[in-house]
């Protein structure tokens, strides 16, 4: 029985193994001088992927067809709105945070309203939602670049015990998500829905309520990530969320969460996020051009998914 459990806990191993291999080769190439710097940069940038990845993971757990494509637009809107409201004043930091969360809740509710009321598949509903949200962001932003409050931006860019603050926040969110997924009634419910929506219904699970909460949760995490990213990079930009669309999905898949739903894990998202950043910096260190870098990134991702997928083929 213990054998079964360790086997079940395995899917995330692969993403960590890949991350470690890439880290070692990069550090070895630079003769060990980059070890600390590389680790800190990786943790910082991985933190943002982790936060959106956790949200996306909950949605993907709901089963085939469930996905949230409004993540980048949500990040952009919450970042721009929060910075505008805070207006460089340290006293407004909390108000800005609450506003970002509110933006997330509103977008999540909008997403599920489209899915449920208009019976649009989630992939299209969240994509159309993201157009609305992006237009909103353009309208509020109007091309000006407001700086984040001083205290907030120094918090986002500094370290505690040598670990980036944003990584600590990502760790806190991940622990909460893990408890939610593994220990709570809600976690059982989304896993049940992901395995068989009809069976879940007949087992007395409120499907609509659970799915609604999940879409809201995903949007709130994206909004939170947008708030942090805008503070970290010294201002919100309209394209700041763009790379997180593919990233949020890729880290979930590479992390060993079943795309078919019902089976997910939080640690894998860490491994995958670290790996994704490390691959890019490794190829940079080797001095490859942008084109070769993208091709190699793609190939490496495919290799990792194949290696991890061999295990899951048992299903």
């Amino acid at each position: 029985m213990n054998g079964m459990r360790t086997l079940g806990a395995k899917p995330w191993i692969w993403s960590f193994a890949a991350a470690v291999i890439v880290w070692v080769t990069t550090v070895w190439f630079t003769g060990g001088s980059s070890a600390v710097g590389l680790s800190q940069a990786t943790l910082t940038f991985a933190a943002f992927s982790i936060i959106v990845g956790v949200g996306q993971m909950f949605v993907i757990t709901l089963g085939p067809g469930n996905i949230d494509l409004s993540v980048p637009a949500t990040m952009t809107l919450s970042g721009t709105v929060a910075l505008k409201v805070m207006d460089v004043q340290d006293s407004m930091i909390l108000v800005g945070l609450l506003l970002a969360i509110f933006v997330g809740i509103a977008i999540g509710m909008g997403n599920y309203a489209l899915i449920k009321l208009l019976r649009i598949p989630p992939i299209i509903a969240t994509l159309s939602m993201s157009f609305i949200v992006q237009s909103f962001a353009i309208w509020t932003n109007r091309g000006l670049r407001i700086k984040p409050p001083e205290m907030l931006s120094s918090f986002a860019t500094s370290y505690t015990f040598g670990i980036p603050n944003v990584a600590l926040i990502a760790l806190l969110i991940s622990v909460l998500a893990w408890v939610l997924l593994e220990k709570s009634v809600y976690g059982r419910r989304i896993s049940a829905i992901g395995q068989s929506s009809f069976a879940a219904r007949m087992a007395g699970i409120p499907i609509d309520g659970t799915r609604f909460v999940t879409y809201v949760l995903c949007s709130v995490l994206a909004a939170l990530c947008g708030y942090l990213l805008a503070s970290f990079s010294g201002g919100a930009a309209l394209n700041m969320g763009a790379e997180y669309l593919l990233m949020s999905i890729a880290v979930v898949v590479i992390g060993g969460t079943a795309v078919a739903g019902g089976n997910s894990n939080v640690p894998g998202i860490w491994g995958a996020s670290l790996f994704m950043f490390l691959v890019v910096s490794m190829l940079n260190t080797y001095g490859f051009g942008a084109g070769v870098r993208l091709i190699l990134t793609g190939l490496i991702i495919i290799a990792v998914i194949l290696a991890a997928g061999g295990r899951k083929a048992l299903r």
């Binding site: 068989s196 879940a200 007949m202 007395g204 409120p206 499907i207």
Partner: peptide
């Protein structure tokens, strides 16, 4: 289908295990 009920009035035993009963994972 929206809010979990405190005390569900009914429970259901499925006949077709694969279709609407067991959670295979």
């Amino acid at each position: 289908n929206w809010w979990p009920t405190k005390e569900p009035k009914m429970a259901f035993v499925a006949g077709d295990r694969a279709l609407n009963g067991a959670f295979p994972l």
